[in-house]
Design a protein around this nucleic acid. Structure first.
Lengths: 338, 338
DNA sequence: CTGAAAGCGCTTACAG
DNA sequence: CTGAAAGCGCTTACAG
């Protein structure tokens, strides 16, 4: 049976108020009283009841992190950082996975059916768009991660997908590649990431006066290794295969890499590869992966901080922060140091 | 402002008891009453207060998953499965990361300082041993994952590390390899995984009447790619390098692979590799990784089920379940299909 | 510096 | 089938 404040109070011969003060380090308690209470706490093994505290305080100390998949390395790495940041502020993180399913995304972000359990939410949508988030019934603060799905309604940490994709593609152009393909375009209206990165890819080609060749832009359903492997196989089956590929994330690139090497072709000599996300896998593949590296720790830090501000009652205009990124040039475009 | 049961009751002209019955689908409410109440609920946008429910019911609906690192693929994949299983039973999972630090592990599993927030815990220790878990002050049910750290005290899902390591090593012996190395032994007294897998490695060599060569057993501090890469470099610097390596997890193997290929050597022609965990990375590496594949979904399912049983008051003798595993033979020992 | 008491929002025996 | 009321364990004005 759990020990209550009252039992501690009885044992120490004080009121529960005083025990509460000791436990919470409040209101200078007289040293002698404190010692007596502390002893009772220790002897009884008292631990405060979270539910009661939450009911009184109106806060749960819980924040929800809603993202597509925990076992996608980018999200695993991001989650780790979010948990650490939140813990530093005394918050506990609950992770919910949507699989990028619009129905599940809506359900989770609306929390219509479920109880009001979280003080706030960090949400990385894949499918949800502008309208979907407008009429949330809940007033729980939300920080958005990823594409600009909602224009101005909520705090938002975004990546300049167009700019980053342009940078990646330009790198391939600068290397003298002539037929640069792209893997990861998304036809599905609800998915933004793929379309934005395609915009950047096209922009880079255009500003280098290169033609955009439609058959070199391969859409994929997901951003998994298997999608990259299959798309690359399609590209290799073309009459004129590409000599470079910009993959819209590292998993796609790793899948593509597997296909290329499986055909006995060399990277980057025959085909250069660039990915996106800078996950650890890509640093240890052979060849290692050139990639766009978003600053995940910064993203996590900003996300948690924005949320904490709202929880502290900040009611200023929603923030829109662009996360930093760099191009990490590695062997998949540069070649092996000999 | 959140809407309360009382406000709904007033609007519907009933008592809060009736609203509660409707919301929780209890005690056949008269259809007319139900409709009236439901309308009030909808109009007001009522959502039950979790803290109050928890206080009344004595349960939080939360279970803690305490593991070393979320961004280690094996744990990310396991976590995904645990979250899914728990969700199916109406529970929400909170993930805590220990980094394998004994101090943090003890702190989290004891929950001495923190409030009693969780109904149960699934705990994958790296460092904690037998004695550490004996005198937990809390009576929260715990299911252990991994090595047999506590003898018989708690529900436990283990992997037969010795047997699996033996199987992996025997596979290399059967391939005719003469100098079989091992990466991942652990000198630290508190770490069990490495030592157990070394036992299996030794047993396989012994039963094939092979000598155990000490310098071919490389300890590592962690089980990360960087550790595998460094250990492999050491092995290659030996006067007589190995022609096969059993790595105690896939990350070590992927790190070793990078080192081997970086030297211009071939896998498996020059050096065959076996890993452990069957993470997705290893299926897409070139060559793909032969590995011990524990059934992660089964582990997650059993862990959650055991915990749910305890939460339902099951007080039978602690269970000890050995998780299934298989040897997945892939290119890193078999070679490329031509 | 400390006590007595209200009340957070809910569930649930107890009546009727 | 429904109401009035107790109480889960805590925090916190209100007194003194």
């Amino acid at each position: 049976m759990p020990v209550t404040l009252r039992e501690v109070a009885e044992r120490a011969g004080v009121s529960i108020r005083t025990v509460s003060n000791v436990v919470n380090d409040f209101h200078q308690v007289a040293p002698a009283t404190r010692a007596r209470v502390q002893r009772a706490v220790d002897e009884l093994g008292y631990r405060p009841n979270t539910a009661a505290r939450n009911l009184r305080s109106g806060r749960s100390g819980l924040i929800a992190l809603v993202l597509p998949e925990l076992d996608v390395p980018y999200f695993a790495e991001l989650t780790r950082a979010v948990i650490e940041q939140a813990a530093a502020a005394g918050y506990t993180v609950v992770v919910d996975q949507t699989d990028g399913d619009p129905v599940r995304e809506r359900e989770l972000v609306m929390r219509g059916s479920r109880a009001a359990m979280f003080d706030g939410m960090i949400f990385n949508p894949l499918a949800l768009g502008d309208g979907d988030l407008r009429d949330r019934p809940s007033s729980t603060p939300v920080v958005l991660l990823g594409e600009r799905v909602v224009h101005g309604g909520l705090d938002h940490i975004m990546i300049d997908n167009v700019g980053a994709a342009e940078l990646a593609t330009r790198h391939l152009i600068d290397l003298g590649r002539r037929r640069i393909a792209a893997i990861g375009d998304q036809i599905d209206e609800t998915r933004q990431t793929g379309r934005l990165r395609t915009l950047g890819y096209r922009a880079a080609l255009r500003s280098a006066s290169r033609k955009v060749i439609k058959e070199l832009i391969r859409p994929t359903e997901f951003f998994h290794r298997a999608d990259g492997a299959a798309a690359m196989a399609d590209l290799l089956a073309l009459p004129e295969p590409p000599d470079a590929v910009f993959c819209y994330n590292d998993l796609l690139a790793l899948g593509a890499l597997r296909t290329i090497l499986g055909r006995g072709l060399r990277v980057p000599e025959d085909i250069a590869l660039v990915g996106f996300d800078d996950i650890e896998d890509g640093r240890y593949s052979t060849p290692s992966l050139t990639t766009i590296s978003p600053n995940k720790n910064e993203i996590a830090k900003n996300a948690v901080q924005l949320l904490l501000n709202r929880l502290d009652g900040d009611s200023s205009v929603p923030a829109e922060i662009s996360a930093e990124y760099t191009l990490e040039i590695r062997e998949s475009t540069l070649g092996r140091p000999m």
